[in-house]
């Protein structure tokens, strides 16, 4: 006999369950967790190399790097004097909460103020997988074209911060910064906006200050 079973479950409930556990753990340990997402080559690692050394004078920082292959990004972060652990996904296009949970065993969790997750370069898949982070920072670089937010609305919607990187190249790339931000605001008006260049240093201080402020807020949080 055939029977219909009603299921009221999220398809990614398993990932969500681990992400919820991680969020609870990060709240308890007062660890601000930031998930950096972008297309490949937008400059996530370069931004981290620039802003983390200064922040590390005040805070204990750990970085989890996600890539399909190679240890290169983690090595770059370590060269900047920051603890980093590389997850190589072996082809998978995003990080999942389980991978983060496993990676945490490489760090002294009682002694972290800021955990940065640099997701696999991809503006689609990482949008669906909660990693227990406090917020996502989406990085869009000027050579990618100003309509990136319109093309990848899901990622824009789930992010809290947008960084327009390689801003020094905007005029050569004929990248209209305001147009790009307009697309983004129509999808998510709550986005906090930064314009950065790792070449000229523009905007990096402001981004670092924002993260610093968030670390302080997290520490003031009662965790309840």
């Amino acid at each position: 006999m055939s029977k219909k079973v009603e299921v009221k479950d999220k398809i990614l409930s398993k990932n969500q369950k681990i992400a919820d556990e991680l969020r609870e753990l990060f709240a308890r340990k007062k660890i601000l967790t930031v998930n950096f997402v972008s297309s490949p080559g937008s400059g996530k690692t370069s931004i981290l190399e620039k802003i983390l050394p200064d922040l590390s004078k005040k805070y204990k920082i750990c970085v989890i790097e996600g890539d399909l292959e190679t240890e290169n990004d983690a090595e770059r972060i370590r060269k900047a004097g920051i603890d980093a652990y590389q997850i190589t996904t072996g082809g998978a296009c995003h990080l999942e909460a389980f991978g983060i949970k496993k990676a945490l065993s490489n760090f002294d969790i009682d002694n972290i103020d800021l955990l940065v997750i640099e997701n696999v370069g991809n503006l689609v898949c990482p949008a669906s997988f909660d990693l227990g982070e406090d917020f996502k920072i989406v990085v869009i670089s000027t050579p990618e074209g100003e309509d990136k937010p319109a093309k990848y609305p899901s990622m824009i919607r789930v992010s809290d911060v947008i960084v327009i990187n390689k801003i020094d190249l905007a005029e050569y790339m004929e990248f209209d910064v305001n147009k790009c931000l307009e697309y983004a605001r129509k999808i998510n008006p709550r986005l906090v906006e930064f314009k950065t260049s790792c070449k000229t240093g523009e905007g990096l201080k402001e981004l670092a200050e924002f993260i610093d402020k968030k670390i302080i807020e997290k520490n003031a949080d009662t965790g309840c």
Partner: peptide, 20 residues
């Protein structure tokens, strides 16, 4: 230090997030 944490399927479809 790094390691592979994904083995979504033995059939090689683990690369799309739709597969996940």
């Amino acid at each position: 230090m790094g390691e592979t944490v994904f083995s979504l399927s033995q059939k090689g479809w683990g690369k799309l997030h739709e597969a996940s």
